[in-house]
């Protein structure tokens, strides 16, 4: 196995995730989760998904931190301290086993950038060849999102609208 830059990124992700679990108050956990989200954005950028990295950096590291803090504004200071109970024995045994099973299953995944992977041979060639003549849209990602999967995108918009209304209701109650 050759060394690559994914390894330090994985170490950073595990360190921040563990740190967010062990700290004693919520404000520190929010700060550490912000850095976790940003390392995730670097992972996306490293894999070449620049747009996903941008969304993760803006929403995960920026907006989510601000929303968490706005929620903490409404909480009493004593409620932001975390009293931890030790985890149950079953979780201590079962979760590492689950992680090992997932690592074992990940061995069968196609390699990154594999041209023979199912995702590369099933519908992607059709989109790449026909999206311009089908939809008159030069950007393939936009054509897939807004044309081939327009119904899906519309329902996603409904979900985001609902989440926005929920955020507005929570923050409005704090102001009054």
């Amino acid at each position: 196995m050759t060394y690559s830059f994914e390894l330090p990124l994985l170490v950073l992700l595990i360190l921040t995730a563990g740190g967010a679990i062990v700290v004693k108050d919520l404000i520190s956990a929010v700060i550490i989760l912000g850095s976790y989200s940003f390392f995730l954005a670097i992972v996306w950028a490293w894999l070449g998904a620049v747009d996903v990295a941008f969304v993760e950096a803006v929403v995960g590291a920026g907006l989510a931190t601000v929303f968490f803090l706005l929620t903490l504004f409404g909480a009493a200071p004593k409620d932001t301290l975390i009293r931890r109970t030790p985890p149950p024995i079953a979780a201590v045994i079962a979760l590492p086993v689950l992680g090992l099973l997932l690592l074992y299953a990940a061995d069968d995944l196609p390699a990154f950038g594999d041209l023979q992977a199912p995702a590369s041979v099933h519908v992607s060639p059709y989109y790449l060849q026909n999206s311009l003549s089908d939809t008159q849209t030069p950007n393939v990602v936009t054509a897939v999102l807004m044309d081939y999967r327009a119904l899906d995108t519309m329902m996603e918009t409904a979900v985001i609208f609902t989440a926005g209304i929920a955020c507005w209701l929570i923050l409005r109650r704090r102001a009054s």
């Binding site: 954005a41 941008f54 950096a57 590291a61 920026g62 803090l69 504004f73």
Partner: peptide, 29 residues
């Protein structure tokens, strides 16, 4: 493209830091 991401992150990090400082100021300690 990557300069765009890093600029956006720098701006949002400023907003996040300001939000944290504002919270600490309101809480007092």
């Amino acid at each position: 493209m990557f300069v765009d991401i890093s600029t956006g992150y720098a701006l949002l990090n400023l907003v996040g830091a300001l939000a944290i400082i504002k919270y600490l100021e309101q809480r007092g300690t």
